[in-house]
Amino acid sequence: MKKQFVAVVLAATFTVGSLAAYADQAHAAATGTITSSVNFRKQPDTSSAAYGYLKAGEKVTILSKVNAWWYQVQDDQGRTGYISTSSKYVRVSDSSPISSETPSGGSTTASSTGDTTAAIDKIIAAGKKYLGTPYEYGSDRSNTRTFDCSDFVRQAFKEGAGVTLPSDSRAQGSYVKSLGNTTTNWKSLKPGDLMFFMEYRGSSKSSYPSNKANQRITHVGIYLGEGKVLHTYSKESGGVRIDSIENKHWEYRFMFGGSALK
C-alpha cells in the first residue's frame, strides 16, 4: 500500500510538472495570420535558404520573437523557420506575450526596437573603422581586406547589429523596400539609413532624370546625417570614405533610401 501511495504521488507530481511546462510553452506561443506573401526562411537571416513562401491567409504558430525583425514560427506542415515581424506580412491575433529569445545557430541582432539607436551607432562605428580600406569590385564576402559598395554596407551591418543583409546592392534595395518605409528625398533620411543610387552620368543635374523609379541601382551607402554618406565606390577615390551629398552628383543620382532595421 505504501509503495502504491508513493507511486501515485510521483505520478501526480510528474503530471503537474508536465502541465506547468506545457502551460508555459503555450503561453509563449501566439497565432499569426500571413497578410502578404513572405519568405519562410530556415534561419533568421535574409541570406538564409528558404522553404519557400507563406501565402496570404495561411496560419502559423509564433514560437518566439528572435529580435525586432524576426519571428520563429511553425507552419501547418510542422516546419520551424523564420519570418519578418513586419505587420505588412503577418498579423498576430493572440494577445499572449511572445517570448523573446535567440535560437541556437541564429543571427544575433538588436533585441528590441528600443535598441535601434544603439544599433545604428554601432553600425556607423563599424563602418568608420574601415575608412581607407581599398575598393575592389566583386570583393570576397569572406574577408575584410577589400570591399565593393554592397560588401562594405553588409559588413558594417553584420558587425554593428548582427544583421546579415543580401550580398548585392539591388537585393539590398529590394529588402529595404520590402520593409515598407522608404523615401526619395534624402533630406528625410535618418542616420544609419541606406541610400541607393543610379549609375553615374556626369556632374550636372540635367544629366539625370527627375523620376528615377525605373532606373537600375548601381551603388549603395550608409547615410550619416548632416548631408553625408559613408561608402566606397572606386580604387581611385581611396576606398571607404565619407562624402557630402548636396549639390553633387550623389544628390542627382539618389533614387531612394530607408532603414534596413525594421
Rank of each mutant, 00 (worst) to 15 (best):
Q43K: 14
P44A: 15
D45N: 15
T46Y: 15
T46Q: 13
T46P: 10
S47D: 09
S48I: 15
A50F: 02
Y51R: 14
Y51D: 09
G52E: 01
G52R: 03
Y53D: 12
K55N: 13
K55W: 09
G57T: 01
E58C: 05
V60W: 00
T61W: 10
I62Q: 01
I62E: 04
L63V: 11
L63H: 12
S64H: 06
S64I: 06
K65D: 10
V66C: 04
V66K: 08
V66T: 15
A68P: 06
A68Q: 14
W70R: 10
W70P: 08
Y71S: 06
Q72L: 03
Q72A: 08
Q74N: 09
Q74K: 15
D76R: 12
Q77G: 06
Q77L: 07
G78N: 08
R79G: 04
G81N: 04
G81S: 04
Y82F: 13
I83E: 01
S84P: 04
S84C: 02
S84Q: 11
T85F: 03
S87Q: 13
S87E: 14
K88M: 09
K88T: 10
K88E: 11
Y89V: 00
V90Q: 06
R91S: 13
V92N: 09
V92W: 02
S93H: 02
D94G: 12
S95H: 14
S96G: 10
S96P: 05
S96I: 09
P97Q: 13
I98Y: 06
S99G: 08
S100K: 12
S100N: 10
T102I: 15
P103N: 08
P103A: 04
G105M: 08
G106C: 12
G106V: 07
G106K: 06
S107C: 08
S107V: 08
S107T: 14
T108S: 10
T108L: 08
T109W: 09
T109A: 13
A110C: 10
T113A: 09
T113M: 12
G114W: 12
D115T: 06
D115Q: 13
A119G: 07
D121W: 05
D121A: 14
D121C: 01
I123Y: 06
I123V: 11
I124D: 05
A125H: 05
G127W: 02
K128T: 04
K129G: 03
K129C: 01
K129N: 10
K129A: 03
G132C: 00
G132V: 00
P134V: 00
Y135F: 08
Y135G: 03
G138E: 01
S142W: 00
N143S: 07
T144M: 11
T144L: 12
T144Y: 11
T146A: 14
F147R: 05
F147Y: 08
D148K: 08
C149V: 00
D151H: 15
D151F: 07
F152V: 00
F152M: 05
R154Q: 15
R154G: 14
Q155R: 15
K158F: 05
K158D: 05
E159P: 03
G162N: 07
